[in-house]
Amino acid sequence: MDKKDHLALAEHFEEIANLINDNDDNGKHIIGSIIAHHYSALHYIDAYLYDVVKPPEERCPFSHKNDQEPNKSRYHIMLNNLDKDIFDRYERLHNYSQRARYKKGFKDFPPNHKQIDPFIKDDLKQIKKHVLNKLKLSK
């Protein structure tokens, strides 16, 4: 996968996030929305990291957080290459996506969708803006 592939996937997941948001029934699909926002942000970030660290094209070389191998750890690479605010926003999206999938978020988040909706949308918006600006692809 190269930078263009990551950008295409980022846009794909962003469209899914928008589709879910447009059709959401009182937070029923907030879990899908969080995951789509997170994956869109992830591919925007990876599009930028592709430029920065030139990973092999065949597979994703990153694990999310690997203290033993920081050169393969998205967390460490982002920390060295992204603005702090963008880093924190991505980490928030990642954290909510993890909680939605692996913890009790799928139960806790639907009743709290009004609190969650605004910040996941804003996080993705800011991450996208930052990455496109870094890639000089501002739209």
Binding site: D88, R89, R92, N95, Y96, N112, Q115, I116, P118, F119
Partner: peptide, 11 residues
């Protein structure tokens, strides 16, 4: 409760 500002502070 879930609070966007607080979660960002924690990150």
């Amino acid at each position: 409760k879930i609070d966007g500002d607080l979660t960002l502070k924690i990150r």
